[in-house]
Amino acid sequence: AEKTGIVNVSSSLNAREGASTSSKVIGSLSGNTKVTIVGEEGAFYKIEYKGSHGYVAKEYIKDIKDE
């Protein structure tokens, strides 16, 4: 099942092309942005936001229960 997560940073969080800190940054998400978690790979979540996919470090995403 898809989960919703909240970007848990004070400034912004980089979204990357792949599940690695050396992957190209494809965008950034500001704190408290809601994202859909579609998968996980190592220390990263694969997320969907406004129709695009990217990878973000798990430690900066807070899971919330689907309402």
Rank of each mutant, 00 (worst) to 15 (best):
A19S: 08
V7K: 02
Y49Q: 00
A1K: 14
G39C: 07
S11T: 14
G51C: 07
G42P: 01
T33V: 09
H53Y: 15
S22T: 12
Y49F: 14
N8C: 15
V25Q: 04
S52H: 12
E67Q: 13
S20Y: 07
G42I: 01
G42A: 04
S30E: 14
N32T: 07
Y55G: 00
G42K: 04
G5Q: 03
E2T: 15
V25L: 06
I6P: 01
S12F: 14
E40Y: 03
G5L: 04
S20C: 10
D63C: 15
S52P: 00
I6G: 01
V35R: 00
A43Q: 11
K50V: 05
S11D: 13
K50M: 13
I61V: 08
V35K: 00
Y60A: 09
A43W: 06
E59M: 12
T4A: 06
I26Q: 02
Y60H: 11
A19H: 04
S52K: 12
G27H: 05
E17D: 10
V56Q: 03
I61Q: 00
K65E: 10
E67I: 14
I61T: 00
V9Y: 07
A57C: 15
A19F: 05
K62W: 09
E41K: 07
I64Q: 05
I61R: 03
V35M: 01
E17P: 06
E67M: 13
I6N: 05
T21S: 11
E67R: 09
F44P: 00
A19K: 04
E59Y: 07
K24M: 09
S28Q: 15
L29S: 01
I6E: 04
S52Y: 11
S22E: 13
I37T: 00
S30H: 11
K50P: 01
G39M: 04
L13E: 03
K58Q: 04
S20D: 12
H53T: 11
E67K: 14
N32C: 14
K62E: 09
A15R: 02
A15W: 15
L13T: 11
V7F: 03
K62C: 12
S11A: 10
N8T: 11
K3G: 05
A43I: 09
L29N: 01
N14D: 15
Y45M: 02
E40Q: 08
E67L: 14
A15S: 04
G51M: 06
N14R: 08
N32F: 11
K24L: 07
A57M: 14
S11Y: 08
T33Y: 05
Y45R: 02
E17Y: 05
V25C: 07
E2W: 15
T33C: 09
A57V: 07
R16Q: 10
A1Y: 14
S22Y: 08
S11N: 13
I64N: 05
N32D: 09
T21M: 14
S11L: 10
V56D: 00
N8M: 12
K24A: 11
G27R: 02
G31N: 15
S12Q: 12
V35Q: 00
G54C: 08
D66P: 12
G5Y: 06
T33S: 11
S23F: 08
G18Y: 14
S10E: 13
E41A: 07
Y60D: 08
E48H: 10
I47Q: 01
E17F: 04
E59N: 07
N8W: 11
I37V: 05
T33H: 05
T33I: 06
A57I: 10
N32I: 06
Y45K: 01
Y60W: 08
K50Q: 13
V9M: 07
S20H: 08
Y60K: 07
I37M: 00
E2I: 15
